[in-house]
């Protein structure tokens, strides 16, 4: 027999990705049994994030300051903007520690199915940034999906009249990938993007 407070906690936990009602109940019980070790720090962390989190008005990144730390970092190359679909992609690129420019988070892709048009994404802001004098290259790092590449082509077209170099991420064989196990689409893309050695 649980209390309304615990039921509410279970209901909210069940909304998290990867958790259903049963696993949410297990998680709630786990928290309740360790109030000092996990539950209170978790509650504090959640309150802290809710109070501090901001969306960067320049690039769309999530941070506790606006402009975000990446946009504010004078060490970064301000001449290059990497265009990505989501903040998760920014985190993935930052993990590589191989990119030193700025980012622009679109907030999704053009999608006929979901009725997402250019005005629903942060494309206008990107065009403004790309036309600023400091920018010399825009890297399109949208996903290798029909929606992702359609969005990339749309941005390329809109940037055609600017004097900015436009590049995109390579498509092809992943590190550790065996040709025998790759799908024909990836292999075709890899062959098309082959380069002289």
């Amino acid at each position: 027999m649980s209390t309304p407070e615990i039921e509410r906690l279970v209901d909210l936990l069940a909304k998290l990705p990867g958790l259903g009602p049963r696993s949410a109940r297990r998680a709630a019980l786990h928290l309740i049994k360790r109030p000092g070790q996990i539950m209170q720090p978790l509650a504090d962390a959640l309150s802290g994030v809710v109070a501090a989190i901001r969306t960067c008005t320049a690039c769309g990144n999530i941070d506790s300051v606006d402009p975000c730390r990446i946009c504010d970092d004078i060490e970064r190359d301000r001449g290059v903007i990497c265009v990505i679909e989501d903040v998760a992609d920014l985190w993935a690129l930052e993990r590589t520690a191989s990119y030193g420019g700025l980012y622009h988070v679109l907030g999704g892709t053009l999608s006929a199915l979901d009725g997402v048009g250019p005005d629903d994404l942060r494309i206008g802001k990107l065009l403004d940034r790309a036309r600023s004098e400091a920018v010399i290259e825009v890297i399109l790092a949208t996903n290798a999906t029909v929606a992702g590449q359609t969005t990339a082509h749309y941005i390329t077209e809109r940037l055609a009249d600017s004097n900015v170099k436009i590049s995109r991420l390579a498509h092809g064989v992943p590190v550790g990938g065996e040709l025998d196990y790759l799908d024909d689409g990836t292999l075709t893309a890899a062959l098309k993007s082959r380069r002289e050695v």
Partner: peptide, 25 residues
Amino acid sequence: EPSRHTAAQIMDDPARLAALSAACA
């Protein structure tokens, strides 16, 4: 099971990709 990846072969061509999306939609 996949038999042929059509989209992957024309990702670089805006017009062909747009035609594929239009036909499907």
